[in-house]
């Protein structure tokens, strides 16, 4: 469920079909730089009603999903 929402938000941001986004995709492969990543993290915060501290650099979609899972737990 979390992954689906992340994929949906990434899909909207990149204007691509969310079903093409895989968990192991890196932000670099999605052509998202560090500034884009911040924008996406802020959208996800709104979607999940949480605050995400980017303590560690995020590399993949899965990193982001895990971070949200940990916050929601």
């Amino acid at each position: 469920m979390i992954f689906e929402t992340v994929a949906k938000i990434l899909g909207e941001y990149k204007d691509v079909d969310p079903s093409t986004i895989t968990a192991d995709a890196t932000f670099a492969s999605l052509e998202l730089d560090s500034l884009d990543t911040v924008e996406i993290v802020m959208s996800l915060e709104d979607a999940f009603g949480i605050e995400i501290d980017m303590e560690q650099p995020l590399q993949t979609v899965e990193d982001l999903v895990k971070l949200i899972e940990a916050k929601k737990a």
Partner: peptide, 13 residues
């Protein structure tokens, strides 16, 4: 900060 997103995050920190 080079963008509004980073600025908001910085303020929150």
């Amino acid at each position: 900060v080079p963008s509004t997103g980073i600025a908001k995050m910085a303020a929150r920190l």
